[in-house]
Computed example of a mutant assay.
Amino acid sequence: MLLAVVEIVVLLVVLALLLSRLGVWSALPGTQRQALAPAVQARWAPAHDEVNGETRVLLRRSRPGPDGVPTVLEDRVFTTFPADDPAWEARFTEAMSNARFRCSYLNAEEEQ
């Protein structure tokens, strides 16, 4: 009788480990999963858009939301120039390069 109880306990432990490894028990509701997930730090990244005929190069601070879609926390206008400027491509390339440098600086500053 004691041997049967020990066998059942061992079988239940093995089954629990198997279910845990397969991820069956890891399907938590969203709020619990969000509470257990480590906090993801927001990051700065360059972005751009066009508003009223002007190209805007932005410094965008965002972080992944609980569903994996980035959540924009802040947009800062880094520079603007006319969208029909004959030197648009050169100005855009230089502005994005400078914005990338500024974003790397801001990210490094926040890590300290």
Score class of each variant (00 low, 15 high):
17 L>V: 14
95 A>H: 05
23 G>V: 06
83 A>Y: 10
68 G>H: 01
108 A>D: 13
88 W>S: 05
84 D>E: 08
71 T>D: 10
47 A>W: 14
67 D>I: 02
62 S>A: 06
18 L>G: 14
20 S>A: 08
27 A>P: 03
81 F>T: 00
103 C>G: 11
36 L>E: 09
100 R>S: 13
88 W>K: 07
28 L>S: 09
9 V>E: 05
79 T>N: 03
99 A>P: 01
95 A>S: 08
20 S>D: 12
36 L>I: 09
66 P>T: 05
78 F>M: 02
5 V>P: 00
96 M>F: 15
25 W>M: 07
15 L>A: 15
24 V>G: 15
84 D>L: 06
36 L>Q: 11
85 D>P: 01
40 V>P: 05
35 A>R: 07
88 W>C: 00
110 E>S: 13
74 E>A: 06
25 W>D: 06
39 A>L: 10
76 R>W: 14
89 E>P: 00
70 P>I: 00
92 F>N: 04
60 R>C: 13
41 Q>C: 09
37 A>C: 10
45 A>H: 11
78 F>V: 08
75 D>S: 14
96 M>L: 15
49 D>P: 02
66 P>C: 01
19 L>R: 10
29 P>I: 04
110 E>P: 01
94 E>K: 09
22 L>Q: 10
104 S>A: 10
12 L>E: 04
94 E>Q: 11
97 S>D: 09
57 V>H: 00
100 R>W: 13
35 A>F: 12
32 Q>L: 13
9 V>M: 07
41 Q>G: 15
62 S>C: 07
104 S>C: 05
99 A>H: 05
1 M>A: 08
111 E>N: 14
56 R>S: 09
32 Q>M: 05
34 Q>M: 12
31 T>A: 07
5 V>C: 00
90 A>Q: 09
41 Q>W: 12
34 Q>C: 04
16 A>W: 15
63 R>W: 10
40 V>S: 12
11 L>Q: 03
74 E>K: 10
100 R>M: 11
79 T>V: 15
96 M>H: 11
34 Q>G: 04
109 E>G: 08
25 W>N: 13
55 T>C: 07
13 V>E: 00
60 R>G: 03
22 L>A: 12
16 A>L: 06
93 T>H: 06
28 L>Q: 14
53 G>S: 01
32 Q>P: 10
7 E>A: 15
48 H>V: 07
73 L>Q: 08
81 F>V: 00
82 P>F: 09
61 R>F: 08
77 V>C: 13
30 G>S: 06
16 A>V: 06
77 V>T: 14
31 T>R: 05
66 P>R: 01
33 R>A: 14
70 P>V: 01
112 Q>A: 07
111 E>K: 12
97 S>V: 12
68 G>S: 06
32 Q>S: 03
29 P>Q: 02
66 P>K: 03
40 V>D: 13
73 L>S: 01
90 A>T: 13
104 S>T: 06
82 P>I: 02
30 G>Y: 14
46 P>F: 15
64 P>W: 11
64 P>F: 09
61 R>K: 13
103 C>Q: 00
14 V>A: 07
94 E>M: 06
17 L>W: 11
47 A>D: 15
23 G>Y: 12
84 D>Q: 08
6 V>F: 01
81 F>G: 00
34 Q>K: 04
65 G>W: 05
88 W>D: 05
107 N>L: 04
111 E>V: 12
96 M>R: 12
13 V>D: 00
12 L>C: 11
50 E>R: 08
58 L>T: 00
69 V>F: 14
33 R>C: 10
106 L>W: 05
